[in-house]
Write a protein that binds this DNA or RNA. Structure first.
Lengths: 199, 199
DNA sequence: CGGTAATATTACGCACGAGTAGGTTACGCT
DNA sequence: AGCGTAACCTACTCGTGCGTAATATTACCG
């Protein structure tokens, strides 16, 4: 039921999707949709909420399995990309569609996203604290968190089209890019190495 | 005229913006809008096209002023962020709104975006070619280009809210993040250094 | 100053889609 | 069987917003 709605919202977006279309996809008729959920927006909210919960649980579990911030970032990103690869409609509706919907649902998703960014900024801060380097201004950490999250989202979108991409491998690449930078490509075989401070 | 339309589309999104609203904002009445542009979608297309052209010119000029790929990336990003800071409505309508619109305009913008990503992948390839390192698989370069573009877009969005952010400084940070990686934060004062192979 | 073209406006038609009223079937219970 | 109820559908209302026809106003020229 929610699955069918997710598929339709994913393909058409919130505004272009009609309740009739969703009802058809489910195999029931429109008044039933209004019986189970109160309105189009509520239905959309229900779909988004379910996907957000799933994604959140997936990532939280993965992050909890890591010890160092580096491990946590890596595992979290892997879990995220695998989730997207397995729940294409879910991801698409959750971010691309929900964020541009305009109503309360969009605000909710944006709030969740903002919290995620804060968490990542916190991870970065912890990572740096564990070394003897100076802590950059908080503003910079937040900026980087934004960039990281945005980059991951873009990768996720790309994965939806380019089928032959392994989420795990890609997660490694991105983590390496963030951690070692492009300079890592020059002389280090970046994969399978770890930051010196954590080995 | 296009300015007013851009403002409305930016604030409300394509679907929620009404032609009447735009006409009011301009100070004329609806049939005039239909006289000048043929339809709502055409008007939207015109707005998007103008902003895309402006942005493209800005970035192209900036990139042309750089010599090494590193310089080009840095200048291009700076130009991009400054453009966004100065044309908030333009950016917002161009990407956030246009890409989720669903029609031909969205496809056009996505095509432009895809070309941008290709260009960046090309820059990365050139950068690596200039060293003696092995060239990573093309697929990896494209993935990174996606991540970089996505990260920059996210930063741009963030700048729209957080007013007290200097685009130039942020561009530096991001370039450093990409080039040197987070490890750069640990012991290198990343600002104002350059990749060894280009000094 | 009259006529005509350009320019704008008001007021409408029309389609589409969210939400609903009222009818219909299926089924259990007495 | 007959009654009540739950589940469901067809067919409608109604608001909204795109696009336009009929109409008014201004500008210009003989």
């Amino acid at each position: 039921m929610l699955d069918a709605a997710a598929t339709v919202f994913s393909r058409r977006g919130y505004h272009r999707a009609t309740v009739d279309e969703i009802a058809d996809a489910v195999g029931i008729s429109k008044p039933m949709v209004y019986l189970y959920f109160g309105s189009k927006e509520d239905l959309f909210g229900a779909v988004v909420h379910r996907e957000a919960t799933r994604l959140n649980r997936t990532i939280t579990d993965a992050v909890a399995a890591g010890t160092t911030p580096y491990e946590q970032l890596r595992r979290g990103l892997e879990a995220f990309l695998m989730f997207v690869a397995e729940h294409r409609d879910g991801w698409s509706v959750l971010y691309r569609r929900a964020r541009s919907q305009g109503g309360p649902v969009a605000r909710g998703v944006n709030a969740i996203r903002a919290r995620t960014i804060d968490v990542i900024a916190g991870l970065l801060e912890r990572a740096i604290r564990e070394t003897d380097a100076d802590l950059p201004p908080r503003q910079d950490l937040i900026a980087m968190a934004h960039a990281i999250v945005g980059g991951c989202e873009a990768l996720a979108d790309w994965m939806l089209d380019a089928k032959d991409v392994d989420p795990t491998v890609m997660a490694d690449r991105v983590i390496d890019l963030s951690w070692f930078g492009l300079s890592g490509l020059f002389d280090i075989p970046a994969r399978s190495t770890r930051p010196a401070s954590h080995t």
